[in-house]
Design a protein around this nucleic acid. Structure first.
Length: 600
RNA sequence: GGGGGCGUGGUGUAGCGGUUAACACGCCGGCCUGUCAAGCCGGAGAUCGCGGGUUCGAUCCCCGUCGCUCCCGCCA
């Protein structure tokens, strides 16, 4: 071993021992006649002292040291002098008086300072990710991620779950996101797809009698990236047999609660047990299917106040079946702030943002202060609970647009008004989502979740008469405005499955070619089953207090889907393309393969 | 595919139609025996992302482009 202890280990109890430490030079403080070096490894920092009187050779050798050199030292643990202990350091009571020093590997001057906790340009961090990962923030996040996966495995193992790996090379599926395709060399013109999730396989495992399956599974979706979306991400995926929705929700709720109490006990859980809110209610009250419920600012329907309004914009919206809704904020706004908010609304597709500030003595001002009667304004203030000095923001339009705009406005106002409590987690279950949504482009129904989600038995009759009203036996777990995950009870009844496929516009031939394997399995005794999958990256990010999942992924892609560390995606020799039975499109440079970039 | 923000020594920032392009950290040299963001002195280091345009003059204004980023579309 090149060390006897780690750099985070030594305490007063070790005083008098001779130890060997290895690590990176975090910082050097050279006083000329005496030098201090902070040695760093994953476990912490230890101050080592180079004293020419104690070890002239080590002192001489140490005069070259610079940040990020890898060194080993051997020396004596001793108490720091009176008044020199460092209370901010776990090892701050002691130091190591170096007797010998070995440079294991020098370092170039790093492109950014590892030891300083400053913002560094993202592309720089990704290009030198191995240096970024040495920094406190990323080390902390990766360790938290490990604690979370370790906890999840222990919890589920203890609940009799079996961890099963499923293939990465899969069959392409038409539903859902765009697949990553992998051409087959053995079968030219045919493709594997990387899994968007192990959905079908985990259902087959239920047919196989595994009873309880889980996997910390990598998933792939070829869609544009966001702060909370990567090309590849990790799901905690599980499926259970002989259960009903409340069983799955209860198990996962217990998992989340125990997890938070175990790995981030400093975070408060706002409400426990988790509140349940229907999809419909979430859209009505918060304008979102993943509302951040750490603050109020709920949406108000203004229709009752505007039943007979002469203001054309609102009257015609209501007459056309649209909605006029509002968010009330407990303060006034400057013209500039209102312009910013209106610009945001227009960006999202709203025609405009109406506003009304209530003033003392029944007065008001705002963009619709003259367009609405005193009675209408009074009713609006009444409905929204706006007091004098408060401002009501109003958006009119079709229901989905109003929800999108006000849901976002609510979030934006909460941030501006500093209404979002720190260190708090507000979990909730979002229940009773619709089973289908109408696909305008293709003129047919789409599954909201996936085609195997069971309809609520209470709504079976609606499958034929009004599919849009059918509720799904599905549930999402949300937290602080993020969708952490979702799941459902699956269809195990062949007849219902076929009615769903029919509604999705799938012919018998398409059903057979796309899902035949699954349906055949269900003909051999499928147990009632259901499951859930939740996003590990988002969960870690929330618990780490990060707003971007790249901060909790060791080697993420940039937002433009490029791996800045390795240079992927890259060109390949054209023969490698041809051997797969592929030809590049004519618009591509014919010698694209010649541009194989040097790695590193 | 669309919209917004950012791009200035190695790093993080300031600046602005005419500057010797400023500051901090880092780096290099010197001094320094109790520091822990060590200190003090000195120094090097920037064709202001790239291309074009406007202008007597552009780091600054305009257009295009590239990179990072946030959002819409897309995606559960």
């Amino acid at each position: 071993m090149l060390r006897s202890h780690t750099c985070g280990q030594l305490r007063a109890a070790h005083i008098g021992q001779t130890v060997r430490l290895s690590g990176w030079v975090n910082r050097v403080r050279n006083h000329g006649g005496l030098a201090f070096v902070d040695l760093r490894d994953r476990y912490g920092l230890t101050q080592v002292v180079l004293d020419p009187q104690a070890a002239p050779a080590a002192f001489a050798g140490g005069s070259d040291l610079a940040a990020e050199w890898v060194v080993a030292v051997e020396g004596l643990v001793r108490a720091r002098p009176e008044g020199q202990t460092n209370v901010d350091m776990a090892t701050g009571e002691v130091e190591v008086l170096v007797q010998s020093l070995t440079v294991l590997n020098p370092s170039q001057v790093p492109p950014f300072e590892v030891a300083r906790e400053i913002n560094v340009d993202d592309s720089q961090r990704l290009r030198y990710r191995y240096l970024d990962l040495r920094r406190t923030r990323m080390r902390r996040n990766l360790l938290l991620r490990h604690q979370i996966t370790a906890f999840v495995r222990a919890f589920l193992n203890d609940e009799d779950f079996v961890e099963v790996e499923t293939p990465i090379l899969m069959k392409a599926t038409p539903e859902g996101a765009r697949d990553f395709l992998v051409p087959s060399r053995v079968h030219p013109g045919k493709f594997y797809a990387l899994p968007q999730s192990p959905q079908q396989l985990k259902q087959l495992l239920m047919v196989a009698g595994l009873d309880r399956y889980y996997q910390i599974a990598r998933c792939f979706r070829d869609e544009d990236l966001r702060a909370d979306r990567e090309l590849e991400f990790t799901q905690v995926d599980m499926e259970l047999s002989f259960v009903e929705a409340p069983d799955i929700m209860a198990l996962n709720e217990r998992l989340f609660l125990d997890l938070v109490k175990s790995v981030t006990p400093e975070l408060r859980i706002r409400q426990e047990p988790f509140p349940h809110i229907s999809f419909h209610e979430a859209m009505e009250r918060y304008g979102s299917d993943k509302p951040d419920m750490r603050f109020g600012l709920e949406l108000t329907d203004l229709a009752p106040a505007l039943a007979a309004t002469a203001f054309r914009v609102f009257a015609s919206t209501l007459a056309d079946g649209g909605r006029v809704k509002a968010v009330a904020a407990p303060q006034t706004f400057t013209r500039r702030e209102i312009d910013e908010l209106e610009a945001l609304m227009k960006e999202l597709g709203a025609a405009g943002l109406a506003w009304l500030t209530r003033e003392a003595g029944g007065e008001s001002r705002g963009s619709v202060a003259k367009a609405l009667t005193a009675e209408e304004q009074g009713a609006i203030f009444e409905l929204t609970g706006a007091q004098p000095g408060h401002t009501v923001f109003i958006v009119a339009g079709h229901a989905a647009l109003v929800a999108k705009c006000l849901g976002r406005l609510r979030q934006d106002l909460a941030r501006r008004l500093n209404l979002i409590p720190e260190g708090e987690l507000c979990f909730a279950w979002l229940v009773e989502p619709p089973l289908f949504e109408w696909n305008e482009d293709q003129g047919r129904w789409n599954s909201v979740h996936h085609p195997f989600t069971a309809p609520d038995p209470r709504d079976l009759a609606l499958l034929d008469s009004d599919p849009g009203q059918v509720r799904a036996m599905a549930y999402d777990v949300i937290c602080n405005g993020y969708e952490l995950g979702g799941g459902s009870i699956r269809i195990h009844d062949r007849a219902i499955q076929q009615r769903v496929f029919a509604l999705l516009g799938l012919s018998a031939e398409q059903t057979e070619s796309q899902f035949g394997h699954l349906l055949r399995a269900f003909d051999f005794g499928a147990p009632p089953h259901g499951g859930i999958a939740w996003g590990l990256d988002r969960t870690v990010a929330i618990l780490a207090g990060e707003s971007n999942i790249r901060e909790v992924i060791a080697f993420p892609k940039s937002l433009s889907a490029v791996d800045l560390l390795t240079g992927a995606p890259s060109s390949v020799p054209i023969e490698d393309v041809h051997i797969l039975g592929l030809r590049l499109a004519a618009s591509d440079p014919p010698d694209a393969s010649a541009a194989l970039p040097a790695t590193g």
